[in-house]
């Protein structure tokens, strides 16, 4: 019987050695921002996508605001072991959660005109002609579709467990009631900034104003397609 045990231990150590040998020739644990971007580019899945896909397979997704940066780092590392999540994906998920768990520390109202915007009194009017709708679509898919769905109907993979449900952005009637300034504010600073769902994170730490305007212009087209 002892021979049996030795065989098993040898088998285990052999497998361990094999896996370690293969992986030592590859990337190390710590990776920089550039490498992370490269990884994401390759996978074409954003941190938001990976968050909704990996977490919702087992349980309701937890809002980014529930934990701070360090806590998310620990949690996602633990989930990497439990759920067998590839390391690059775990890093992308952690980055997404850390970027969206705090509202950007900026004043809420837009106070200066961007190159692509004009401010008329309190009303912000977007210069749609200068907005990059294709970029807006790509950014929407990357950052918003996990909850709002690729068609904008509020049916993304992470939406299942959310209360209230993510807004139907393809609802033209509803979208027409929202001003450009409101959309800019809610995307930049999150749902809580306009007394809506705190589950909607602020994206001001992730995208600049030009990119957010690209998304807004894309959304305005999306709701008219319906």
């Amino acid at each position: 019987m002892k021979k049996y045990t030795l065989k098993k231990i040898s088998l285990f150590l052999g497998l361990l050695l094999m896996v370690v040998s293969i992986s030592l020739g590859d990337k190390s644990y710590g990776q920089g921002e550039m490498e992370l971007k490269e990884e994401l580019k390759e996978s074409e899945l954003s941190g938001a996508d990976l968050w909704s896909q990996n977490c919702s397979r087992c349980h309701n997704v937890r809002s980014p605001q529930e934990y701070n940066d360090a806590q998310w780092n620990i949690i996602v590392s633990h989930m990497r072991v439990i759920g067998g999540i590839p390391a690059a994906q775990a890093r992308a998920i952690t980055k997404f959660l850390q970027e969206t768990n705090d509202p950007p520390p900026q004043p809420i109202a837009p106070t200066s005109a961007d190159k692509t915007t004009e401010i008329t009194g309190q009303e912000l009017i977007l210069d749609a002609e200068n907005a990059d709708v294709i970029n807006g679509k790509a950014l929407y898919k990357r950052n918003c579709a996990a909850c709002h769905g690729t068609s904008g109907k509020g049916d993304g993979p992470a939406a299942v467990s959310m209360r209230p449900k993510p807004r139907d952005l393809a609802d033209e009637e509803y979208m027409q009631t929202l001003s450009d300034a409101y959309l800019l504010e809610v995307i930049t600073y999150g749902g809580a900034s306009v007394d809506k769902s705190p589950l909607m994170p602020g994206w001001g730490n992730v995208m600049d104003q030009k990119e957010i305007i690209d998304i807004i212009v894309y959304l305005q087209g999306l709701s008219k397609k319906k």
Binding site: L16, V19, L45, G83, G84, I85, P86, A88, Q89
Partner: peptide, 19 residues
């Protein structure tokens, strides 16, 4: 010993192992 690898098959394809 455990881990996971992404696979370039379809969206989100991957494999995980644990021994």
């Amino acid at each position: 010993v455990s881990g996971g690898f992404a696979l370039n098959m379809f969206e989100g394809s991957k494999i995980n192992y644990a021994f």
